[in-house]
Simulated assay, not measured.
Amino acid sequence: MRAGFFQYDVISKDRDANLEYIASKLRTEQFDLLVLPELFTCGYAFDTREQLLPFAETLDNSETIRRLTAVAALCGGCITGTIPELCEGLLYNTAIVVNDTGLIAYQRKIHLPDYEKRLYTSGEAIKVCKHKDITIGIMTCFDCWFAPLGAKLKLQGAEVVCHSACFGGDVTPRILPIRALENQYFVISCNRVGGELFEGIWESYRGESQIIDVDGNILYKAGNEEELVFVNIDLKEVGNPRFGSLITSDFTSEHEKYRIDIF
């Protein structure tokens, strides 16, 4: 399968401009799966709920989903990234998965940094979804720091985990290969580049988006400039890591010794 990411400098507080830019970059591409950054429609930095609300969308009436559906129809694959979601008066940082039929899945970010807790409510569900023959799991940025979430996706059969992010530190890029290795699935991480003002202080994002194989090897790692990247990955490798298979031929049974719940 052909999978990748579009790492770019999200345009702050301008949904239309971001969606048009994404469409302009993808309209001649063919792929199976593409990961966009976290909060790709509006940017990450909002000081108040009132500033964020104009960019929040309901999933049953979302301009972003409509426009990504059209892009997916041209490109033949599915697209994922996170948007601000408004549901019953609550705001969520929600990953959407869109193909040519529309929204096929969503997952609300579970682990919120303190900065986000001022604005968003944590999600309460971890689930995989299917696109064609691909079983897709979702993590959003800080989610990847928590091994039980990654293991829960493994137990549900995830083959590729999509990780949309906005980070500036160097820890998250080091964690992601561990998640891939310990669960024997591919990880595609898309972090944005550029920067934003946080309460009057300019903060930068580091990029370094990655595509990681089931042995934790980095197949591609971006720098800190805009990049649209695809690689071909073989889903037959899932559960059959080259090095790990020297230790055991049945990782699945080892994983199934655990039951992981979220409360």
Rank of each mutant, 00 (worst) to 15 (best):
N61K: 15
N61Q: 13
E63G: 10
E63L: 12
E63R: 15
T64Q: 08
L68H: 03
L68K: 02
T69A: 03
V71R: 01
A72N: 01
A73Y: 05
L74G: 07
L74H: 09
L74R: 14
C75L: 06
C75H: 03
G76S: 04
G76P: 06
G76L: 04
G76R: 07
C78I: 01
I79E: 02
T80H: 01
G81I: 02
T82Q: 10
T82F: 01
I83P: 08
I83Q: 05
E85I: 08
E85D: 05
E85L: 11
L86A: 05
L86S: 07
C87P: 07
C87G: 11
C87T: 10
E88Q: 15
G89T: 12
L90K: 15
L91M: 05
L91K: 11
L91R: 13
Y92I: 11
Y92A: 02
N93G: 07
A95F: 10
A95G: 09
A95M: 14
I96G: 07
I96T: 11
I96C: 09
V97R: 04
V98G: 04
N99A: 09
D100S: 14
G102S: 12
G102C: 14
I104F: 08
A105K: 06
A105H: 12
Y106Q: 12
Y106G: 03
Y106N: 12
K109F: 10
K109I: 10
K109E: 10
I110A: 06
I110F: 11
H111E: 12
L112Q: 07
D114Y: 14
D114A: 15
D114L: 15
D114Q: 14
Y115V: 15
E116G: 06
K117Q: 13
K117M: 13
K117C: 09
R118K: 13
Y120I: 10
T121D: 09
A125P: 05
I126P: 04
V128F: 09
C129I: 07
K130E: 13
H131M: 02
T135H: 09
T135P: 02
I136V: 06
G137K: 00
I138C: 06
T140Q: 08
T140C: 13
C141V: 05
C141S: 08
F142D: 01
D143V: 02
D143C: 07
D143N: 09
C144P: 00
F146Y: 14
A147E: 08
A147V: 12
A147L: 13
L149Y: 10
L149I: 11
L149D: 02
G150I: 00
K152T: 06
K152S: 11
L153H: 05
L153N: 07
L155D: 05
Q156L: 15
Q156D: 09
G157W: 06
G157L: 10
A158P: 03
A158N: 03
E159C: 03
V160E: 00
V160C: 00
V161S: 02
V161R: 01
V161C: 05
C162G: 01
C162D: 00
C162R: 00
C162Y: 00
H163I: 13
H163C: 05
H163W: 02
S164R: 03
A165K: 00
A165Y: 01
